[in-house]
Amino acid sequence: MASSVFRLAPLPSPPVPLPRVPGPKLAPFTPNARADIEFVEFLGQEKDADSQVWKVKINGAGLFALKAFYFCHSDSLRDGQGGDLTRPLANLQVYVDYFDPFNCECRADGRLKEEKREDLAVKAYGYLLLTPQQETDLARKVTGESSLLPHANAGKLNGYNFWRRHEQHRGLPVRAIVKELVPRKTLNPNQAQGMWADLQTLHSLGIFVGDTHGGNYLGGKLVDFSRSWTMYHPAMVQIHDSTLQGLMLDELQHLLDYYYFLRNSLSRTIVIPQDLEAFCSGHIAKYKNLPRAYKWLKWEKNADAAKAYVEERLFERAAL
Rank of each mutant, 00 (worst) to 15 (best):
K156Y: 08
Q191T: 10
Q245S: 14
L314Y: 09
W229G: 08
G62N: 11
A108F: 06
D84V: 04
S228D: 01
T86G: 07
D257R: 02
V53E: 03
V223C: 10
L199K: 04
C104M: 00
G220T: 02
G83T: 09
G23K: 05
M1A: 10
E46W: 10
L26F: 00
G82Q: 01
A90R: 08
D275R: 11
K57P: 04
H73Q: 11
E38Y: 09
F42N: 02
K307E: 14
L148N: 04
I270S: 06
D100Q: 14
E300H: 03
F99V: 02
G214C: 03
K221A: 03
G144W: 06
A33S: 12
W296Q: 00
G126T: 13
Y95A: 05
N32E: 07
K221M: 01
Y127G: 00
V21Q: 07
Q245F: 11
L187M: 07
A9K: 11
V21I: 10
Q168T: 11
N59Q: 06
F261P: 05
T136M: 15
G23W: 02
G126L: 02
G194T: 14
K179H: 11
K116G: 09
A278H: 14
T131Y: 01
R87N: 10
F279S: 11
A2L: 04
V178S: 01
L120G: 00
D224T: 00
V21D: 07
G282I: 14
E167F: 12
S228W: 07
L256H: 06
K116F: 07
N302G: 07
P31N: 14
H240E: 13
F69T: 03
I37M: 06
K55G: 12
D137P: 07
Y127E: 03
F64I: 10
E311K: 11
Q45R: 15
H240V: 07
T86S: 14
G214K: 00
A61K: 08
R184G: 15
Q245W: 13
